[in-house]
């Protein structure tokens, strides 16, 4: 059995976000890039499953659609423990573009389980996983918070409104994973970092695909309003401020 983890290359979550070209492009200058946190957790769970599978899972691969600049992110995934990596050589345009590139690759190189993070921490589109399963005509399960194996059967848990749902399925399928899938991402070991030098990272040309959307403009959220401290004894002042200044009551 083979597992593929789709990896997005995203800015570090503490990055100060800026835009260029009349606020239509993200300014990547000086940005530290990381594995999308959900994807990193998906990879961690995939590795746990492989380690506990007694050899039934023979390989964990990672894939990314991106330029050469994203290779350090893929190599980090290799250092964490993925067996090999694939980079589709294209600048990602939108979710459809990315899903199409992944689908083309997967039609020729099928996997049993395909894991996608629920969204990427940069654009938060939550689209690639669903689109990928549609393009491949495969079942997909969304909002997966647990994956376990019982022989050939795969048991998935989903967080739903007010409870959780347990599903059983067989391969192949796409799982769109979220919080709970693994406790915390793995820290690569020195051995892992050393081994990553030698693990295969295959670069595949992109296929012709047109993006369905384009960015018209970005806008930063308004700065946080200033905090005003009111003495706990002074309830009247608080009421007056809420009424006249904040105009919420």
């Amino acid at each position: 059995m083979k597992i593929l983890v789709c990896i997005s290359n995203v800015p570090d979550t503490t990055t100060k976000i800026r835009f260029t070209d009349n606020d239509t492009k993200f300014d990547a200058a000086g940005v530290q890039w990381i594995i999308n946190p959900w994807d990193e957790l998906a990879l961690t769970r995939a590795l746990e499953l492989k380690e506990g599978s007694g050899g039934a899972i023979e390989k964990i691969s990672v894939i990314n659609v991106g330029s050469k600049d994203t290779e350090p992110t893929l190599r980090k995934a290799l250092a964490i423990g993925a067996d090999d990596a694939i980079r589709i050589d294209a600048e990602p345009q939108d979710a459809y573009f990315v899903a199409s590139q992944l689908a083309e690759y997967l039609k020729a190189n099928p996997f049993d389980i395909m894991l996608c993070g629920i969204d990427s921490s940069d654009y938060n589109g939550s689209l690639v996983g669903g689109m990928l399963s549609e393009l491949l005509d495969l079942p997909s399960v969304s909002s997966v918070s647990k994956i376990n194996m019982d022989g050939e059967n795969i048991i998935l848990n989903r967080e739903i409104d007010g409870g959780s749902e347990t599903l059983e399925t067989t391969v192949p399928f796409v799982a769109i994973v979220q919080k709970g899938i693994a406790l915390e991402p793995r820290i690569p070991s020195m051995r892992g970092i050393m081994m990553a030098r030698k693990k295969p990272l295959e670069v595949k040309p992109a296929v012709e695909t047109e993006a369905l959307t384009e960015f018209a403009g970005f806008e930063l959220p308004p700065p946080k309003a200033k905090c005003k401290m009111v003495d706990a004894e002074n309830v009247n002042e608080l009421v007056e401020l809420l009424h006249n200044e904040a105009k919420v009551i």
Partner: peptide, 18 residues
Amino acid sequence: TEEQQMIRQAARDYAERE
């Protein structure tokens, strides 16, 4: 190097998390 950055990040993650 990319490797040095990866090692520094691994140490940072361990220190901050644990």
